[in-house]
Amino acid sequence: MTSLSSNTLSRWSTDELLCWSLRGIATIAGAIVMLIVVFLIVEALPVLHHVGLLRFFTDPSWHPAEGLYNLTPMLWGTLFAMTGSVLIATPLGVLSAVFCHYYAPPVLARPYRRLIELLAGIPSVVYGFWGLVVLVPLIAEVQPPGPSLLAGILILMIMILPTIALMADASLATVPQQYIRGAAALGLPRWAIIRGVVFPAARSGLLTGVILETGRAIGETMAILMVCGNVVQTPSSVFDPIRTLTANIALEMAYALGDHRAALFVSGLVLMTIIVALAVSAEWISRGRMYG
């Protein structure tokens, strides 16, 4: 550093300027996350203080106007909807990318990819509206009432499918050609190459895709609000209506005051905790090699 500064003053200051502006930008990005967490905690504190965290999991029901704050059914609702949709969307998305890369003729692969990109760009409220007027009445024919966990899982699945499909597509594209040629030269059939060579090589990208789609599944609000029925209960079948934590906030925030409002911030905190747990476990599963 001293030699640099003694050589040319101008180069030193440019480097220094870049360094400090990058530090500043990084600090802002980090500070935003910390600010949100601090804000959530500050807003939730009043109710945590005189109700206590435990009661959010042990109260008989969620009736904030009557002072009952059980979040567990909504926690289950969020987790069930998320798990169901991720379990269906992941194989579909990965296989769609495999089709696009290794089975589809180029004439078909390009428009197909554009189509998936278009799917990713549709606003969530449009999915929700479609779900409300098409999907929910269909489910109601099979098993009333219609708005249900199943409707939520299906809508979420359609919404997160492009995320995993595009991420898988991008990570398959980064698999070095010589791996595939080498495997083909050994006489392996196409599916064996994909399973034994491509998937392990693209693992980190696929995992990132799963994490991104899970994050989107947890955070989705509008579409879920419209098709899930929003009844606060732990579902006993996929045809039971549920309410997710995000829907809870969106549904009640406009009309909430005092403890009720603070209790909704506790919902936000719980959501944040799930996301953090997800990120930590993903980091742990990939042992830090996720971005490698």
Binding site: L132, V133, V136, P137, A140, P144, P145, G146, P147, L225, M226, G229, N230, V231, V232, P241, R243, A250, L251
Partner: peptide, 18 residues
Amino acid sequence: AQVIIGDNEQGIKTVAGN
């Protein structure tokens, strides 16, 4: 309840669809 809704329009769409 089997369905909980927010505004009036959502209520009307829910009943119209069921």
